[in-house]
């Protein structure tokens, strides 16, 4: 069974490169360019894992995470925060808000695959 990862990320270059890595790792990839679209896709696609950027136009990643966790249809999908910016106590904050992990960009492709393998499909 193919496992699906949803990337919520406004930066096209990162979507394309991350998608390439994940597809090489055997995953199917869906993407959304902002929080609102991401939430809608999460509901319609029901991915096995979500990679969520923080700095996005419109609602940011933290708000997107809050809404994903509030909605019973998406609350169980594991979310990994995927960020290029320093966030004060980022690991703690993302864990408190219900994300399963916190991943920094730039990244090593092998590390991303290992991380996704670790959390994918681990529905709460």
């Amino acid at each position: 069974m193919t496992r699906t990862v949803l990337i919520i990320e406004d930066e096209k270059l990162i979507v394309v490169s991350t998608q390439m890595v994940l597809e090489a790792g055997g995953f199917r990839v869906e993407s959304a360019v902002n929080g609102e679209e991401g939430i809608a896709k999460a509901r319609s696609v029901a991915p096995d894992l979500i990679l969520l950027d923080i700095m996005m136009p419109g609602i940011d990643g933290w708000e997107t995470l809050t809404r994903l966790k509030r909605d019973p249809a998406t609350a169980g999908i594991p979310v990994v925060i995927f960020t290029a910016r320093e966030h004060a106590r980022g690991h703690q904050r993302s864990a408190e808000m219900g994300a399963v992990d916190y991943f920094r960009k730039p990244f090593e492709p092998d590390e991303l695959i290992a991380l996704v393998e670790k959390h994918v499909g681990q529905r709460a």
């Binding site: 930066e11 490169s17 390439m20 320093e86 960009k105 730039p106 990244f107």
Partner: peptide
């Protein structure tokens, strides 16, 4: 923090593509 974000974002693309190609 904003400068770092602006620099890391394109770098993520470069590094990921180069790594995939190198592998």
């Amino acid at each position: 923090s904003i400068v770092a974000h602006e620099l890391r974002t394109p770098l993520t693309g470069i590094k990921t593509f180069a790594t995939m190609m190198a592998k």
